[in-house]
Design a protein around this nucleic acid. Structure first.
Lengths: 217, 217
DNA sequence: TAGATTGTTAATCGATTAACAATC
DNA sequence: TAGATTGTTAATCGATTAACAATC
């Protein structure tokens, strides 16, 4: 059975649709047309309809889309109709920030463990999770169902830790270390490279300044 | 003087080139060809050459690219040849994590102020920056040169704070709040939506599971 | 000079937008 | 039924890859 591969561009847009629909739902909006949604989201109505139709027909001619239904369906597509066990490797500021962020839990991402090398952090509790030592990581991963590992450790250590995690059975890595991990292609890696994000800002600031300088000549 | 607009796709790749070239430089690599670099980075050599040639010819036929020169030039393109004053709005876990991250400073992004509404945090020092109260923000922005404001505050407050910052003269916002800001188009906004990033992981996990289920039938 | 590799043009591929028949 | 809006095909646009002449 051949299924057309969904393009990365589409997948990247889905969470944003989900967010807007969630907000509409909170505001008790019952139905919305692709045109109305397109105006809110600043995309074309055509793109919304094309994107959705990759996964099926969720609307009704002459009516539009039922907000609650579409929200639920996109949730299913995104895999948010189940729970994920998440561990955080690296209990520094960023790791602790992730552990404290309650929004993830609401979407089904449950923090099950936090690990660090620093013995001073051992036993400190973050929202019910005591920080564990890295020596215990292998055991933990092998004896618990870990769906996602967030890597908030220094770049020098990230590739080895990632490789270890994968060898112990972890299939998805949320990588905050500023490096690429080069894991087998069946392993899912989602990178959050904050420095790169910041550089896009400075690029734009610089580009705008140059433009202004030209216009003033 | 007409200059061809650089596509967003190209700009997004630049920081990654910069990172790889920085690593080569650390390893004392003097020259590299687009082919070698393409193998390391898992992109096509053609794409590397096309991307770079948007900004000029940095290589030499028969030789390739001088690593140090190309690194420096991409740094200039990204606007990393100057300093940026950054303030952080919201001194929660994430705000503190950003304030503590020394890598940004190395690239010229200097944290000049951290603000929060919580009086308990007032005066607490993070790497030399004392947390200030939000009441003092307007004054601070108007009396200091603030290039970039990082928003690590709750989603409900983000749009108003962003609008205020812009009205006081801030031109670039690094937005960590899970919402769109809808600011004038001359204002640069770079969004870091962690929840969306996580949803792409769950999408992929789900998609892979379904694929495996099909294969086992 | 011969070999290597760029810079750049041309070809291909994929994603976005437009258009409209189907249908609620 | 008439109006609205989807689902989907076709047209356009843009980005990526291939190819190769220029040249170090």
């Amino acid at each position: 059975m051949y299924e057309k591969e969904i393009s990365l561009a589409v997948i990247k847009r889905l969470p944003r649709y989900y967010r807007y629909l969630g907000e509409l739902l909170e505001n008790d909006v019952v139905r919305i047309s692709s045109k109305e949604l397109s105006e809110k989201m600043q995309v074309t109505a055509s793109q919304i309809r094309q994107d959705l139709n990759n996964f099926g027909g969720f609307g009704q001619q002459g009516y539009g889309y039922n907000v609650e239904y579409l929200f639920t369906e996109i949730g299913k597509i995104l895999g948010l109709d189940r729970k994920y066990n998440v561990i955080i490797i690296g209990a520094g500021n960023l790791g602790q920030a992730l552990a404290n962020y309650t929004d993830f839990e609401r979407r089904g991402f449950l923090i099950k463990g936090i690990f660090d090398v620093n013995p001073r952090l051992e036993g400190i509790s973050i929202r019910g999770n005591e920080i564990r030592m890295m020596e215990t990581l292998e055991d933990f991963v092998k004896n618990n169902s870990v769906h996602i590992a967030a890597l908030t450790i220094p770049k020098a250590k990230a590739p080895q830790v990632a490789a270890d995690l994968v060898s112990w059975g972890v299939k998805a890595i949320w990588n905050f270390a500023p490096t690429d991990l080069n894991l087998p292609k069946d392993i899912m890696v989602e990178n959050v490279h904050l420095a790169e994000s910041l550089m896009r800002l400075s690029y734009n600031l610089k580009a705008r300044e140059e433009q202004e300088r030209e216009e003033n000549q």
